[in-house]
């Protein structure tokens, strides 16, 4: 599989400014990301996730090392449409409507107007924003802006998506929708590099993760490999408490460790979805 992203000894140091010391945002790292997969970029605040994404988007020049994106230098004009970058911050041009904003993006990446309009309408509908297409961005909630930001990234049908916290500020349904869309993109052969603090979301949709720590690549690999342990566990459902206690005693006798026997409970996320669906089904007054 061809590499969508390739970097050798890539490093970024922010120069000293006044009394602020120089900061090594990225220590020399080698990176190879194959096409057509979703890669999670994890790490604590200040670990270099956004800096790495900005380098790959052509917004930050590396201090040293080399990097190619889809075989080109990151700032190459041809990548403007082939690579989409969704920055974490607020959207610009907040006096525009959602539709006008997407039309601007389409024009900036040289998409023909008719094609841009059709894509914009389809994406607004896919992201649940069809009724807000003519509203000013100023009236949008944080979640709506996040969805629109993703719509803008998807508009030119890119081959590589660089997403910085695409689900921060989104409700669970929005997070689920973004997950679905990213998996559709992967199925269509698009490579996704996704920086996130939502570990469950990363675990659910990513094929591979990169873990950054103070600008260094602390770990990388397929989730199955990284999360696997030598210990086996037994998950049981449908027994009453006495049966559970007997099973626990048998497990202890076999040398196992019974961590806890507890009453089953619904996950908060499942409860939220159930309530949201019930509310949707109710006729509006």
């Amino acid at each position: 599989m061809a590499a969508a992203i390739s970097a050798q000894q890539l490093a970024v140091t922010f120069a000293r400014r006044g009394r602020t010391a120089a900061v090594a945002a990225l220590q020399p790292l080698d990176l190879e990301i194959a096409s057509g997969q979703i890669v999670g970029l994890l790490g604590p605040n200040g670990s270099g996730k956004t800096t790495l994404l900005r380098v790959l988007a052509g917004l930050q020049a590396p201090t040293s090392g080399t990097v190619t994106v889809l075989g080109q230098a990151p700032g190459a004009k041809v990548l403007r449409a082939r690579v989409a970058y969704q920055p974490e911050g607020p959207l610009p041009l907040d006096t525009l409507s959602a539709l006008q904003f997407l039309q601007y993006v389409g024009a900036a990446v040289d998409l023909p107007n008719a094609r841009a309009d059709a894509r914009a309408a389809a994406l607004l509908q896919r992201l649940g924003l069809e009724s807000a297409g003519r509203r000013s961005l100023r009236t949008f909630s944080t979640g709506m802006l996040k969805r629109l930001n993703l719509a803008a990234a998807l508009l030119p049908e890119p081959e590589l998506l660089l997403l910085d916290e695409p689900t921060s500020g989104l409700d669970p349904a929005g997070c689920e929708l973004v997950g679905e869309i990213l998996q559709e993109q992967r199925a269509a052969g698009v490579t996704v590099l996704l920086a996130s603090h939502h570990l469950l979301e990363v675990e659910a949709i990513c094929d591979e993760v990169l873990v950054l720590e103070r600008g260094r690549l602390a770990a990388r690999g397929r989730l199955g490999d990284l999360l696997a342990t030598d210990a086996w566990s037994l998950v049981v459902r449908g027994l009453d408490l006495p049966a559970m206690e007997r099973l626990g005693a048998a497990a202890s006798a076999a040398g196992g460790e019974v961590l806890r026997i507890e009453r089953g409970r619904e996950h908060l996320y499942a409860l939220f979805r159930r309530l949201a669906r019930a509310s949707d089904a109710e006729p509006r007054r």
Binding site: R54, A57, G58, L59, K77, R80, Y85, P87, G89, P90, L91, P92, L93, D94, T95, V105, A108, V109, A152
Partner: peptide, 21 residues
């Protein structure tokens, strides 16, 4: 005020900086 690249650290400057030729 409108065009985010007229000043540093404007909201959405990265977005426009990358797209605009």
């Amino acid at each position: 005020r409108i065009w985010p690249l007229f000043a540093l650290q404007r909201p959405g400057a990265d977005f426009v900086q990358r797209l605009q030729g």
